[in-house]
């Protein structure tokens, strides 16, 4: 017994392959928000924690500049948790906006 896809290949079905190849991927905004949020939050937490574990005299001098954008963030264990929250929220917002923008532009181009 052959499966439908095999059957399709056996019969030329070029038009259908053309339709498949013309399909444009869409991004799921909710998925992108979760993925970017996790990356942002965990990324900033790990970066902060890594510097804290390594220790030193002027620990995380450059990373702590993020405090300019994230009020309350610093290279401390408390700051790592604050950074996790900020990173997650900003990441989620960027992820969502990214997918939304992509889908919107793709839809506009699709209509043309």
């Amino acid at each position: 017994m052959t499966d439908p896809l095999t059957e399709r290949v056996r019969e030329p079905g070029q038009a259908e392959w053309d339709v498949i190849q013309a399909a444009i991927a869409r991004l799921r905004a909710s998925v992108m928000a979760v993925v970017f949020g996790l990356c942002g939050g965990v990324g900033l937490f790990v970066a902060t924690a890594w510097l804290l574990l390594r220790g030193g005299l002027m620990v995380g001098r450059t990373l702590s500049l993020l405090g300019n954008f994230f009020p309350g963030y610093s290279v401390t264990w408390g700051g790592a948790l604050v950074g996790f929250v900020y990173g997650s929220l900003l990441g989620a917002a960027i992820g969502f906006a990214f997918a939304w923008l992509y889908n919107m532009i793709a839809d506009l181009r699709d209509k043309d």
Binding site: Q21, A23, I24, A25, R26, F98, A99, L101, Y102, N103, I105, A106, R109
Partner: peptide, 11 residues
């Protein structure tokens, strides 16, 4: 499905 290069670049 392919990614729309202009849409991905644009976003």
């Amino acid at each position: 499905a392919r990614y729309d290069a202009v849409a991905l670049g644009g976003s």
